[in-house]
Computed example of a mutant assay.
Amino acid sequence: MASGHRSILIAGAGATGLTAALELARRGHLPRIVDSDAGPVPLTESRALGINARTLTLLSPSRVTDTILQEAQQIQHFRIAAKGKVLADIDTTEVPGPYSAIHALAQGHTERLLLGKLSDYEIVPEWQTVVEAVSGDLSETKVTLKKLDGSVETADFDIVIAADGSHSTVREALGLGFPGQVLESSFYLADFRYAGPVDPSYAEISLFDPGMIGRLPVTRDVLRYISTLPDFESRIEHPAPIAERVWASDFRIHFRRAEVMAKGNVFLAGDAAHIHSPAGARGMNLGIEDACWLAWLISEGREQEYAVLRMPAVTTVLKQTHQLTSLITMKHPMAIAIRNLAVPVLLRIPAFRQKLLHGVSGYDTQSPPWIDGAL
């Protein structure tokens, strides 16, 4: 059967699933995409914000990058501060290639841009459709779907892509483990809208003894604060009068990855395959990267290479995010003192600074061979 005529089901219409559908569609496939939710992530409740240079490169052939750049906030500087003093200021535009290291755009907005491009191929997610069961052999997979009206459908698919999140029904149906660890510390976040514009050009981490508060731009008048401190909101130095507290949440950080990223003709991508700390803004980006690689491999008839090709990238990102998280969650006074002295010194070393930017840009994973000149 010609690759373009294979039946493909994508479970999950988040950023990973939508990217997989779009990348497949522009290569001549007609995937079916389902999701248990009623629609994309609400714009005011988007956990993921960062879009790195690798993602912009990957989404450039579909022209989604053009629309992202029109809407996103370019983060030109990353600052580390302690006790009101800036310890380091990194210029995030000091990376090779056409894009700076990272931009900020709410995940819900990114998903809507992907949906817009996907509609050009007349592919629309089937919302409020739940994957109830997955079975079959290595060549064909039988999936049972339950719709909002209670009707049940069972269909066979040549390929199934599990992009249905950390509690993936598909992964669990395959009996694949999701080992890892959860940090003891909780993280807290709050988004504030201000009465006037604020400077969205930089992100900042303020270190405390112990704990931290991160400041990230969401839009030109909304900032996100993320912290390890339960009372962090009382410590925020707001840049302008507050118009609205838009959203607040708390969460625990898990570091997990699936035992394997594929079983037969079922492939795991995004949070269904791996979850980790938001440090370094790699989560949504890594899922989009999974989706692009898998779509290309499917079109090349090489999808069985997916797990082997992607696992090194996943390992790299989990290691990097774990290291960054360890730096900002230190509690021992001596370790904190050493960190506060060492980090500014290290970041003055060009090679160290470039290595950090290389990772934040997403350039520490394998370059996509289907895009000419990609880093």
Rank of each mutant, 00 (worst) to 15 (best):
A2S: 14
I10F: 04
A13E: 07
A13R: 03
A20S: 13
L30C: 10
S36Q: 14
P40Y: 08
L43V: 13
L49C: 07
S62L: 12
T65M: 03
D66G: 08
Q70Y: 11
Q73R: 13
H77S: 15
G84W: 00
K85I: 08
D89W: 01
D89F: 03
D91Y: 04
P96C: 02
G97N: 13
Y99Q: 10
I102W: 12
L105F: 08
Q107L: 09
L113R: 04
L115Q: 04
L118N: 12
I123T: 03
V124Y: 14
E126K: 06
W127D: 06
W127E: 05
T144W: 02
L145Y: 01
L145W: 06
K146E: 12
E153C: 07
H167L: 10
A173I: 00
G175H: 15
L176F: 12
P179I: 10
Q181R: 15
F187T: 00
A190K: 10
G196S: 14
D199S: 05
F208A: 01
M212C: 09
R215Q: 13
P217I: 00
D221A: 06
D231R: 09
R235M: 09
I236R: 03
P241L: 04
R245K: 15
V246F: 09
W247N: 12
M261C: 15
A262K: 07
G264C: 00
A269N: 11
D271Y: 02
H276G: 01
P278A: 02
A281E: 01
M284E: 02
N285K: 04
W293H: 14
R302K: 11
Q304G: 07
Q304P: 08
Q323V: 11
Q323K: 14
L327T: 15
I328M: 05
I328A: 01
I328Y: 03
I328P: 00
I328R: 02
V343D: 02
I349H: 08
R353P: 01
K355G: 06
L357W: 09
G359Q: 08
G359K: 04
G359H: 11
V360Q: 13
P368C: 12
G373Y: 11
A374W: 05
